Amino acid sequence: MSSDLDHPWSSDLTNPGGTTRRLLVRQARWIAHDVLELRLTRPTGGPLPAWEPGAHVELTLPSGLRRPYSLCGEVADSEAWTVAVHRVPEGRGGSREIHETALVGRELEVRGPINRFPLVPAAGYLLLAGGIGVTPLLPMARELTARGLPWRLVLGARDRSRLGYAEELVALGGDRVLLVPQDEVGLPDLAAELAAVPPSYAVYACGPRPMLDAVTALCRTADPARSPHVERFTAADGTEPVQLDAPSGEFEVVLARSGLRLTVPADRSVLDVVREKLPDVPFSCEEGYCGTCETPVTAGLPDHRDTVIEPSERPTATTMMICVSRCDSPVLELEL
């Protein structure tokens, strides 16, 4: 995901670290079928740090699971952060816990805001959402409307009951918003949507893996080719973490702040080895798509295998996702 730190939306909110604070789950409400919205505030009230469209926070759930969720409330609402969570029965447990636990009135540890999906300057914007993927795009649509910039948003879901924030989006954008309930009209015509906007438009997409893979392929083969901005909820290919499949040997990791030197075997991740000594190192997806485990690199040559850092940015990247990425040098030094 690329960004331009000189454009009006950019700030140090893109810092991969983020601050941790305890927030109260003040309110919960249903905004679509199997989608629960949580409103988070300071326990005693008061303003929260500002954030920008595309930002997310990471919740530590009562069980200890850490999960990232896009902020989808009003940027101007300084009193609360809002996230919406889709229940995925076959998922890894985070969404089920949120839906099945009485969270209202409880405090959660919240890290962020963090923005790896920021708006970049463009002549206009095509926003493509699948299901819960609407959450980071809704604040973008609000921001673009406020700035008087052209945009179009396409939201698809299995049926109308799953089109989250549909009424608000239509009220906001009118005929700039296309709702696509699959049971009525089929899948969104992504090729037609991409062909209908000028090459100068930025393309943003968030949703299920097949949709994002399709958007990426269509943009790659377009004339001229486009570079879409995508945010994934699952690994790019749905396989096991990539370091288990790709060849890689053993290497050493030096933890600069802790003064530790550890051996990372060929069949284990950096994250696994580091957590044996530093169990509080943050992580979530363990598949290289969420960015929670992003760690500064102070020496060595990282072998980037995540989907967070754009391929074009990897040669100069100063951080790595330690859940999947490895090392092309004998020793890797991390700021841990």
Rank of each mutant, 00 (worst) to 15 (best):
5 L>E: 09
5 L>C: 09
8 P>G: 04
10 S>Q: 15
19 T>V: 14
20 T>A: 15
22 R>Q: 14
23 L>P: 07
33 H>Y: 14
34 D>N: 11
34 D>V: 04
35 V>H: 05
39 R>W: 04
41 T>E: 11
51 W>A: 00
53 P>R: 09
56 H>R: 05
56 H>A: 05
57 V>F: 01
59 L>V: 11
61 L>Y: 03
65 L>N: 12
71 L>H: 09
71 L>A: 11
76 A>S: 04
76 A>N: 02
86 H>G: 14
88 V>T: 08
88 V>L: 07
100 E>K: 12
100 E>R: 14
103 L>F: 13
110 V>H: 03
112 G>L: 08
113 P>E: 02
114 I>D: 04
119 L>H: 10
131 G>D: 05
134 V>F: 02
142 R>H: 11
144 L>I: 02
148 G>R: 06
152 R>T: 03
154 V>R: 12
154 V>Q: 05
154 V>M: 06
154 V>G: 07
158 R>C: 10
158 R>G: 13
159 D>T: 10
161 S>A: 14
161 S>K: 14
164 G>Y: 07
165 Y>A: 13
165 Y>C: 15
167 E>P: 12
167 E>F: 12
173 G>N: 08
175 D>Q: 10
175 D>V: 03
182 Q>E: 09
188 P>L: 02
190 L>R: 13
191 A>P: 14
195 A>L: 02
198 P>H: 09
198 P>S: 03
209 R>D: 14
211 M>R: 07
215 V>D: 01
216 T>L: 05
218 L>S: 05
222 A>Y: 08
222 A>G: 05
224 P>G: 02
225 A>N: 01
228 P>V: 06
234 T>L: 15
234 T>G: 13
239 T>W: 14
240 E>T: 06
241 P>F: 14
241 P>R: 11
242 V>H: 13
244 L>T: 02
250 E>W: 02
252 E>H: 11
254 V>F: 11
255 L>I: 04
256 A>C: 12
259 G>H: 09
262 L>R: 10
268 R>I: 04
269 S>K: 05
270 V>D: 08
277 K>V: 15
284 S>C: 06
287 E>L: 10
287 E>Q: 12
291 G>R: 08
292 T>P: 08
292 T>M: 11
296 P>F: 01
297 V>R: 06
298 T>W: 10
301 L>G: 09
301 L>S: 13
303 D>M: 10
306 D>Q: 04
309 I>H: 07
314 R>L: 03
318 T>D: 15
318 T>P: 06
319 T>G: 10
324 V>T: 01
326 R>C: 00
329 S>N: 04
330 P>G: 04
334 L>A: 07
